[in-house]
Computed example of a mutant assay.
Amino acid sequence: MIILHHLNKSRSKRIIWLLEELEVEYEVKPYQRDSVTFLAPPELKQIHPLGKSPVIEDDGLIVSESGAITEYLIDKYGQGKLAPKRGTNAYIEYLQWLHFAEGSAMLPLLLKLFVTKDGCKTNFLADYADAELLKILSYFEQSLTGKTYLVDEQLTGADIMMSMIVESLVNNGSIENFSNLKRYAAQLTTHVALQKAEQVEINYS
């Protein structure tokens, strides 16, 4: 059985969604953030030296990093679901979006979060974060023109990975500024597996 080490209010909800889509048997081992520091508990370091989530265990193998976990699970359990056929242009496009989520897209989101949380005036960082975030979101918005999903008009692991970006926009209200992203966000919520994942996360929060 796959074991998902899940930290509340973290990016690992995407992996719950993925596991539900794959219809594989899994167990969630929940961890709670420190109420003061909001950091992960030290117990997670017993699973992986970085003490971060998500991490999965499968057949004695420990896999970390959301993108790597997504690739691993789809390759092993997908049976043709959630990824285009290897060797196609669509597969290359899929890989780019899959890793865009934690690569290009996540940094400006985190910078914006940290600057806002810190509350101090910055000489450079706040303006840089705003400019980079607008660039990323404008690219994301444009890429969804006339499309239901990011690749091949079907749900893939790329959509699951990018859902974290979408969720952050919904939560802060800025999704209203992007019509394609707003439509896309609504489409993602129609998936029963995502609805189940949200309930699972609530149960472990």
Rank of each mutant, 00 (worst) to 15 (best):
T70H: 05
E71M: 13
L73T: 03
I74K: 02
I74N: 03
D75I: 02
D75L: 03
K76I: 14
K76S: 15
L82D: 02
P84D: 08
P84K: 12
P84A: 07
R86D: 06
G87F: 07
G87I: 13
G87N: 07
T88P: 03
T88D: 06
N89G: 13
A90R: 01
A90T: 00
I92P: 06
E93L: 07
E93P: 02
E93T: 05
L95Y: 00
L95M: 09
W97I: 01
W97L: 01
H99G: 06
F100I: 00
F100L: 04
A101T: 08
G103S: 15
G103N: 10
S104K: 14
S104Q: 10
A105Q: 01
M106I: 08
L109V: 12
L111E: 13
L113M: 09
F114G: 06
V115P: 03
V115H: 07
D118G: 14
G119I: 09
C120F: 09
C120N: 11
C120I: 14
K121S: 14
K121C: 11
N123E: 12
F124S: 07
A126M: 09
A126R: 15
D127I: 05
Y128N: 12
A131Y: 15
A131F: 12
E132G: 10
E132N: 11
L134N: 14
I136W: 06
Y139T: 07
Y139C: 08
S143M: 05
T145N: 11
G146N: 04
K147R: 10
K147C: 00
T148M: 05
T148C: 04
Y149F: 06
L150V: 07
V151Q: 00
E153G: 13
E153Q: 14
Q154I: 11
L155Q: 02
G157E: 04
D159N: 14
D159H: 12
M162D: 00
S163Q: 04
M164C: 13
M164S: 15
M164H: 15
I165M: 04
I165G: 00
V166E: 00
V166D: 01
L169N: 06
E176R: 11
F178R: 01
S179Q: 11
N180H: 04
K182I: 08
R183S: 10
Y184F: 05
Y184N: 02
Y184S: 03
L188R: 04
T189G: 07
T190V: 10
H191F: 14
A193D: 08
